[in-house]
Structure formats: structure tokens, C-alpha cells
Design a protein around this nucleic acid. Structure first.
Length: 281
DNA sequence: TGACAGGAAAATA
DNA sequence: TATTTTCCTGTC
């Protein structure tokens, strides 16, 4: 299962490395991304995106949707540049980033694990988890593991859970897999914005930042605006906006409107690149 | 080795 | 309701 997709205004590398996803691997010039019960191999050559799917087949449309290729990026960028003066220069330096449409259950666990943690540590925890309870998929690029299903997460032994080194997050994770499954998160993803936010905030270990990450990266809410330390730095440096996470979240959504999530990714990438953090290219 | 990085929840004012 | 404190693992 493979194909080529013509693309414009798209950077595969920036999209996969801007912090919205953790489990992406690089091999032989390809990016490998476990997605549901598939592994997607992706490679960009200029205006062509080449893909191969292993495990459960995916349509070209599914691959496009996953990578945000159905978003009308010119309209989005014009809207953002028009609403906020001075933002065009940020867009210029971050061109090609798309918001992915990931799996809600996996995204929730991923960002719960991300609390007070740096990206390499988050990635390690998720990879250990997938190797412990995910399905192995063999590809010509090597073997990769799918993100585990909730019923398999519940079978993990205490020592296996402890091997994730979750620290104070461990009790959140245990409670989460006890009380929630894929269907529960799919239900949430069908709610309108405010109800989604409220439902997500009920999950222990999910605060306002994580809730907005889940909505933006896996629940099709392009107006969500996750605020972490990098966004706080960026919003202060670029727009002199400062305050609590809640205040900056509200201000960002108000400033940028229905595509605030795209603005957030641009700011995140822009600031991290400037500070030389991991993930900037 | 001690300072620092990184959000949510509980405690406190 | 707003602010402070506590919680863990890992890097430098």
C-alpha cells in the first residue's frame, strides 16, 4: 500500500518535529510513524509526498487527514497575519507546519506523560509502553510497535508500569486506564468545544494545557491554544502578553481566533528554533 | 553535586 | 478565587 501525494506549503520534517507528536522514527531517509494499527512511512521530495503503509491499510485520504493536508493553509495563514500585526514574520519562518489529526486515546496518554517532562523523556516512556503492550509490525525499515489498546494497558504488571518512570504521574496513568478507554475519548471528541474542555479537565493529570493539546492534536479543534513555558516565552517576547496559563490561553484564543492552534504551533516552533532547543530545523 | 527544566493538584491565604 | 507548594526523573 503506497502512493504519492502532490503537496504545496508543506514541510514533513517541521510537521513531525514541532512537538505535536513524540513517536516518530527516522530510517534511511524516511520517517516512520505508528498510527492506529498501521505504520506509515513518509518521505518528502519537494512538492511530492511519498507514503507506504504497513499493517492495516490506509487510504490516501486517511494519510492526508493525518497530516493536516486537507487544511486550507493559505486561508489560515492569511487570516492569522491579518488579525495580528507582526505575525507574518513568524509565519514566514515556520512555513510548512500542519496540525496533525492523531488518535485521541494515545494523545491523552502522551500529554499526561509530558507533564513536567522534556521531549526525549516523554518519547522514552511512550516507546517503553508500546514495546510492553503494543502490537509489533514488521516493515522493510525494521519492526515498530503500535500504541497499546486500553485493554492491554490494563494487563500491565506493577513492575512494568514502574519501569515507565512516571513518578508522580503514575497514579494518574493508573486511574486513567482504569476509568477510560478509546470509546470514551471518541465520545469526547464529538462534543462541542466547551464541553470537550470540561470533559477533559475531569481526567486526573489533565489540566488546561494538556486539555488543549488533546483537542488541537487529536480532536479537530483548530482554535485550541495550549500554553506551556515556550508559548509563555513567545507570547511575552512577541506580543508582551504575560500571566497565568489560563490568562495566556484566553488571550491567545482571542487574538488569533478560529485558527489559534496554528498560531500556537508557529510560535512554539519559532521560539524553540531561536533558543536552539531539540526539534528545531 | 546542586541547579534547573517541565504542568497539575492540593494546600493555603 | 488567586497564589503558593509539592510531586519525579533526568540532564548538565
Amino acid at each position: 500500500m503506497q502512493g504519492k501525494i502532490p503537496i504545496v506549503h508543506f514541510s514533513l520534517e517541521r510537521t513531525l518535529k514541532c512537538g505535536q507528536t513524540f513517536r516518530v522514527f527516522e530510517k534511511d531517509g524516511w520517517f516512520l510513524y505508528p498510527y492506529g494499527n498501521s505504520v506509515v512511512a513518509l518521505k518528502q521530495n519537494g512538492n511530492t509526498l511519498e507514503y507506504k503503509v504497513f499493517g492495516v491499510p490506509l487510504s490516501e485520504e486517511a494519510v492526508r487527514n493525518l497530516l493536516g493536508l486537507n487544511d486550507d493553509i493559505e486561508t489560515i495563514n492569511n487570516e492569522l497575519a491579518q488579525r495580528v500585526s507582526g505575525f507574518a514574520k513568524v509565519i514566514d519562518k515556520t512555513l510548512g507546519i500542519r496540525i496533525m489529526r492523531q488518535v485521541p486515546f494515545e494523545t491523552t496518554v502522551s500529554f499526561m506523560f509530558s507533564v513536567q517532562s522534556a521531549i526525549p523523556l516523554i518519547r522514552r516512556r511512550l516507546n517503553v509502553l508500546s514495546e510492553l503492550a503494543g502490537e509489533k509490525i514488521d516493515t522493510p525499515f525494521g519492526a515498530f510497535y503500535t500504541f497499546p489498546e486500553s485493554r492491554n494497558l490494563r494487563k500491565l504488571s506493577d513492575s512494568e508500569v514502574q519501569s515507565l518512570k512516571l513518578g508522580f504521574r503514575e497514579k494518574w496513568f493508573r486511574e486513567f486506564i482504569e476509568r477510560y478507554d478509546e470509546n470514551a475519548l471518541t465520545e469526547v471528541s464529538r462534543m462541542p468545544f466547551s464541553e470537550k474542555e470540561r470533559a477533559l479537565l475531569k481526567i486526573k493529570g489533565v489540566g488546561i494545557k494538556v486539555a488543549h493539546c488533546i483537542m488541537l492534536f487529536s480532536m479537530n479543534e483548530l482554535s485550541a491554544f495550549p500554553v506551556d513555558v515556550w508559548i509563555k516565552r513567545g507570547m511575552e517576547e512577541l506580543f508582551s502578553v504575560k500571566g497565568t496559563t489560563k490568562k495566556v490561553t484566553e488571550k491567545g484564543r482571542e487574538m488569533f481566533g478560529k485558527y489559534a492552534g496554528y498560531a500556537q504551533e508557529y510560535i512554539y516552533y519559532y521560539i524553540r528554533k531561536r533558543r536552539g532547543a531539540e526539534g528545531g530545523t
